[in-house]
Computed example of a mutant assay.
Amino acid sequence: MNKTIKLTAVAAVAALALAACAEAPGDGGTASATTPVQTIKPVDGFKPCVVSDAGGFDDKSFNQLSFEGLQKAAAEFGVKAGEVQSKSDADFKPNLESLLTANCSLITSVGFALSAATVEAAKANPDIQYVLVDDAADNDRDGKVDAENIKPLIYDTAQAAFLAGYLSAGYSKAGKVGTYGGMPFPTVTIFMDGFKQGVEHYNKVKSADVQVIGFEGGDKGTFTGGFESNQKAREAADSIINQGVDVILPVGGPIYQAALDSIDDSGREIALIGVDADVFVTDPKTEKYILTSIEKKMDQSVYDAVTTAGKGQFSFDPYIGTLANGGVGLAPLHNFEGKVDATLVAEVDALKDQIISGEVKVTSYLAK
């Protein structure tokens, strides 16, 4: 099978040292205690399973979304999914092995940090189907998936971040917007780069001069060095907010929580941009801060992958989420709907169509 991907490999197998604990595979109990009700007949022996990155399945972000997508599919097939959570990168290999002993036929690894361990497991178990969320499984950087039995699910979030950048520039009264990330991995900087491009597009269209604080491009910017809402995350948020921004985009799971404290202590009205999930929905304490969120529809893409596997129609062709296929997008404005000028909203809607048509180009490591 030909699974060449025109992209630079997503680098780095790094631990996201968050708060979950490694544990033996479960039978789907985290999502629901009820027995699944079959609506679709699965192929014989079908058992979908999932292993989390260090954030755990309640991270209000990509682990949770992927988990929910898999659980939804499992319920429709009337099967109980296997699940195991990771505390650090040391858990990845044993957790993947534990799912093999649990007779899983399809294993979903959530997060680019699991890439190397998943490739190793897939090569050793060619009869098992693997789904890798948010990584191209191209650790040798030759433009091809490293194991034939892995389906990568990746997302060109620069497209949706471009819209968020344009929206933020138009919303900002200070003429300054900011962003910071956990670590300078491609899956992090793709948000920041798309955001910056969107602000620059706004400046070009409007002959404006909105500044982007915290990111210059590539790996040059403000990064916390990890993915925890800790003192370093707070210092990063403070450093940007203290430069006068009134919109801020934290990229890296729960590091946005530190920005909430920074916003409160600033005494100013500062809007927050969420990432991965619609953070307004997943974390209600953000409701008064969230302008919008840059969404990766991981729940839907994982659901689709698991469903096709359960029907015996699985394809290992890589999936790339875009604005065109609905794999990425902007969340609703929610409480900010009345605060954002209707003309600006219409411009963002039109810009989405222009990106889809190719009239406006958005570059990223997935789309040069």
Rank of each mutant, 00 (worst) to 15 (best):
M1Y: 05
A12P: 09
A17V: 12
A24T: 12
A24S: 12
P25L: 02
F46I: 11
C49P: 04
G56L: 00
F57R: 06
K60G: 01
S66Q: 13
E68C: 12
G69E: 15
G69H: 13
A74D: 04
F77E: 06
V79W: 03
S88D: 13
D89S: 13
D89R: 10
K93F: 01
L96I: 13
L99I: 07
A102M: 10
N103V: 12
L106M: 08
S109E: 00
V119E: 00
A121L: 08
K123V: 05
K123A: 03
P126A: 04
P126F: 05
Q129I: 13
Y130R: 09
V133G: 11
D134W: 09
A136S: 14
R141H: 15
D146V: 11
K151L: 10
T157A: 12
L163N: 09
G165Y: 09
A169S: 02
G170C: 01
G170I: 09
S172F: 06
K173S: 07
T179Q: 09
Y180C: 07
G181I: 03
T187S: 03
T189V: 11
G194Y: 10
H201G: 10
H201S: 10
Y202V: 06
S207Q: 10
I213T: 03
G214H: 05
G214T: 09
E216T: 05
G218H: 08
D219C: 14
K220P: 08
G221M: 02
T222A: 07
A237W: 01
N242S: 10
D246Y: 00
I248R: 04
G252P: 00
P254D: 00
I255N: 05
Q257S: 01
A259T: 15
D265S: 14
S266P: 11
G267H: 07
E269L: 00
I270T: 10
A271K: 03
L272C: 11
D276N: 10
T286P: 02
I290M: 13
E295F: 12
K297C: 07
K297Q: 13
V306P: 07
T308G: 14
A309D: 04
A309Y: 02
G310F: 08
F314T: 06
F314Y: 07
L323S: 04
V328A: 02
V328W: 00
T343D: 15
V348C: 12
A350T: 09
D353M: 06
Y365P: 12
A367I: 02
A367S: 10
K368M: 14
